[in-house]
Design a protein around this nucleic acid. Sequence first.
DNA 1: CAGTGGTCTAGACCACAAA
DNA 2: TTGTGGTCTAGACCACTGT
Lengths: 214, 214
Amino acid sequence: MDRWGVARQTVQNAIDQLRTEGLVGSRPGRGWYVAERPAIRRLARNRLSKAERDAGRGAFLSDAAQGGWRPDVSVEVRRQPADDRIAGILDLAGDVAEVVVRAREMRADGRVVQLATSYFPAGIAAGTAIEQPDTGDGGVYERLEELGFRLTHFEEAVNARPARPEEASGLGIPAGYPVLAVTRVAWAGDRAVEVNDMVLAGDRYELVYTLPAD
Amino acid sequence: MDRWGVARQTVQNAIDQLRTEGLVGSRPGRGWYVAERPAIRRLARNRLSKAERDAGRGAFLSDAAQGGWRPDVSVEVRRQPADDRIAGILDLAGDVAEVVVRAREMRADGRVVQLATSYFPAGIAAGTAIEQPDTGDGGVYERLEELGFRLTHFEEAVNARPARPEEASGLGIPAGYPVLAVTRVAWAGDRAVEVNDMVLAGDRYELVYTLPAD
DNA sequence: CAGTGGTCTAGACCACAAA
DNA sequence: TTGTGGTCTAGACCACTGT
């Protein structure tokens, strides 16, 4: 205010802009400070290979072991009617198309860093280990293979969008701050067996994909 | 103001929040309106395969042909000393490590939708077609192959972050609005031959990766 | 010209933190 | 207690739009 000869609200608005750009943060009563660039976690996407899955632990847990932070996952499993989008991807017909839903919240040292919601056709997953909170070694993909669905490939669609208010409070970022939204579809031949919607705190993550040149 | 019994500034702040979340837009003198969800362009990433490259046109132009919009690319080529990050990735030694830079701005029907800046070691690209604005059929990757660099794979690192002010005005989005930042590294064996930094308007794009299951 | 969005000021109140 | 950040109000001016 002194330096530029402007009103308090004007400074406040300026700082609010910097906040939405992720450049400053503040704590009431303390002050405002230049934001620290959070450590970026690189998530290699070749972790979906069968060899890696056979190693046992899920991707999140091996990341934790490597990164030296304390992982913590809470799971909620339920059944519900599939909405249009999910029904479309999983190619479910009929008006009572039901899906098994696994909603997970992943925390690193107590902070929520990732939300993931998986959908499976109830015809495949109902009554199996997939409906258990703990799905055991290799996770749901191994369980799908045991059920006779030989996974052939995954498709991941990535986009960046502003965090919705619920997501923002969950992930501990300002509302509207960028998140990575990833939709993964697991395929067994030409049959889609899982849709996984993931939301990751934007610049705290980096997804790394390796693509063959030929 | 009438409905909630609040001051004008309060409404303004509320609307500003919605704007940063991409939900509303406004034009001075006209009013504010619910933002239309822009059509999402799906960018399949298998387009980097040799077979696709042999087809001739660059990825951006074939997207345009498929999507029915008018493509428009402006290119600026220059040489400059490599900064630490680029030198690190390209494994350039010495204090005079120079790179050839291709800075491109891609427009769809006149609107900037993507910014891309490529870096090549000057030792490889200087004096070649890579320094020409138009690199010819198959683009820079074909030129690299002709120079004896057999491309083996690409690595793409994706993250989401707030748009920097220059990027925001370039891409026609509010400052701080999410962008997808993709860094692609092209490898010929164990040698990195190109670094390409791309910035895409966040929720206008969806990057699709296909991953093998084994 | 009136109505709109955008921005600024000055003053006020609250919650929180540190001395 | 004092200083901080966060938020709100009331009033003002400007630029732009459409009648």
